[in-house]
Design a protein around this nucleic acid. Structure first.
Length: 261
DNA sequence: CGGTTTTGACCCGCGC
DNA sequence: GCGCGGGTCAAAACCG
């Protein structure tokens, strides 16, 4: 009886190993697809930036007035801005986005096209940091916060890692992770600024990296819990799975690379 | 007491 | 030139 059970166990282990190998290969392929897409995203963003710079230069040349210089500065600032959407608790009425940085609120205004007020924040982590952000609830869905970041941080995030302005992942383990949704369409927003103007690509793994710089065992637990929570939130989102499936299908039809055999 | 938030006033750009 | 709307300032209030 024992030998029969052993044979069965070996078979089971082999099946699991085969499955694991298959998943590993799939994972490798998906990683490759993501890196190819990120590269393409960078190229597109570079081209866009070049075009913008060229347009701004021709604009400045055509009129050398003070106005055009001011406009140039504004356009540059706008080009460096990025927008993210964060799903919050329905009961949460505050306009705070926990992104790891320290912000000082310097204003709030009611806007014409949105019944919810817009809050203005300046980065107060260091006195000379030029980064600003605007936070406003989505008119269609009040549980979604729209945060617009302008400029680039001139300092590192508390915890030792320098993050791009669009990396909404701070050192606080209770951070609300941004849900990649577009409130205006039913598809996922792929914000090009996430991997374009900013030097760093917004990788999901970065979410947990700040804590690992001064990691302890309890932090590891937090990290794992956060990872599980984050993965669960992504898989719960039908838009995410639909978009992922679409991306994979496209890559099969029109492969961005030649898979190794 | 120092830092943060609130809020009305003010500034400035833009369209008409 | 004027009015509108978004962005900023700064004094007062609030909070730990």
């Amino acid at each position: 009886m024992g030998t029969q059970e052993n044979a069965f166990d070996i078979e089971k282990v082999q099946a699991l190993e085969a499955k694991l190998q298959h998943l590993y290969r799939e994972n490798q392929d998906l990683k490759h697809i993501i890196s190819v897409m990120s590269n393409k995203c960078n190229i597109i963003q570079d081209e866009l930036n070049k075009k913008r710079t060229h347009e701004m230069c021709t604009m400045a040349e055509s009129s050398s007035s003070q106005d055009s210089i001011k406009r140039l500065a504004r356009e540059t600032m706008r080009a460096k801005s990025s927008q993210v959407f964060i799903r919050t608790d329905d009961a949460d009425t505050s306009l705070t986005v926990k992104d790891g940085y320290q912000w000082k609120k310097y204003g709030q205004k009611n806007t014409k096209d949105n019944p919810y007020p817009r809050a203005y924040f300046r980065c107060s982590t260091t006195p000379d940091c030029p980064v600003k952000k605007k936070v406003q609830r989505c008119a269609d869905d009040k549980s979604i916060l729209m945060a617009t970041y302008e400029g680039e941080h001139t300092h590192v995030l508390f915890g030792g890692t320098k993050y791009s302005t669009s990396s909404l992942h701070g050192s606080d383990p209770s951070l609300a992770y941004p849900v990649p949704v577009n409130p205006f369409r039913s598809t996922i927003t792929l914000d090009l600024n996430l991997c374009g103007t900013n030097q760093e690509i917004n990788r999901p793994t970065q979410i947990f990296n700040n804590k690992t710089t001064n990691t302890t065992t309890s932090n590891n637990n937090n990290k794992n819990n956060n990872m599980a929570e984050y993965v669960a939130s992504l898989t719960r989102d039908p838009n995410f799975t639909a978009t992922l499936a679409d991306a994979i299908a496209r890559s099969i039809v029109n492969p961005p690379y030649s898979p190794k055999k």
